[in-house]
């Protein structure tokens, strides 16, 4: 494992025992994620992309293979608060203001009051929500709530950001806007991002690497290094390179589907 690899999986397997027998959620997954990478996991439902992200977060325990995060086991990394996690739903506490919600992890991790206030202000302006600190979640749109949940994941300055279909429930116009903002945020913070999606344009637009997965059993069928430049205006999606990568992703998804 090179020192640059933030996340490294070798021969990772995960089998769930259910009432209907065992489900092979992940099979022989090998993947290295380098520092500063923006890696998207794409595939149909049941391909294990969310399960893999949850393994990295220490929320699921693999049944075979090795997985290291920042050189530690995923559970040690979780205890060391090595990553921020963004779920599909914003999941803000309705009884806390936006500022209070962003403060939640800081309170749990024992930051001082002064530092809490300073960090809340900083990450809220990072996601363009400065001035909304005292609003309650129900006063914000869905897209704004999701931005607040991203701010919450950024507040304690973990190097890794894990995002599980964070924009899946939003409409396309909002999603485009948030994708653009996310790229700017990534450029400014230089975080390593793992991003689960089932949208091909979203994966191609955002990522430096795209991991294509297929179901039953969940496995990696293709890993594509994106030749797109780091600077990406929205209309890059009409360029020849973009369409070529999107095509390759689609091919990969189709190849994984032949057994259906």
């Amino acid at each position: 494992m090179s020192a640059e690899n933030v996340i490294s999986a070798q021969g990772l397997n995960l089998t769930f025992q259910t009432n209907d027998g065992s489900v092979h959620a992940l099979k022989d997954v090998d993947l290295d994620i380098r520092k500063g990478d923006f890696v998207s996991f794409i595939g149909p439902s049941g391909c294990g992309k969310t399960t893999f992200l949850r393994c990295i977060a220490g929320l699921e325990t693999p049944t075979g293979g090795t997985l290291s995060v920042n050189g530690m086991t995923p559970d040690e990394a979780r205890r060391a608060r090595a990553y921020g996690y963004v779920f599909q739903a914003a999941g803000l506490y309705p009884w806390r203001t936006i500022g209070g919600n962003v403060k939640l992890p800081l309170e749990i991790m024992g930051f001082s009051k002064a530092e809490q206030a300073e960090r809340v202000a900083r990450v809220l302006s990072l996601v363009d929500l400065a001035g909304f600190e005292k609003k309650f979640p129900w006063q914000l749109s869905g897209g704004m709530q999701q931005r607040a949940s991203i701010a919450r994941a950024l507040a304690f300055d973990a190097d890794i950001l894990l995002m599980d279909e964070p924009f899946g429930a939003l409409d396309e116009i909002v999603r485009d806007h948030l994708n653009e903002q996310l790229l700017q945020l990534w450029a400014r913070t230089e975080k390593t991002i793992g991003f689960v999606t089932h949208s091909i344009p979203e994966a191609v637009y955002l990522s430096t690497r795209i991991v294509v997965m297929s179901p039953r059993p969940g496995r990696i069928t293709d890993v594509i290094d994106s030749p797109l430049p780091k600077e990406r205006p929205l209309d890059i999606r009409e360029s020849k390179e973009f369409i070529e990568i999107a095509h390759r992703v689609r091919e990969g998804l189709r190849a994984g589907h032949v057994d259906d």
Partner: peptide, 9 residues
């Protein structure tokens, strides 16, 4: 919600 708190340890 419970998972979120687990990610904060």
């Amino acid at each position: 919600q419970m998972d979120l708190l687990r990610t904060y340890y």
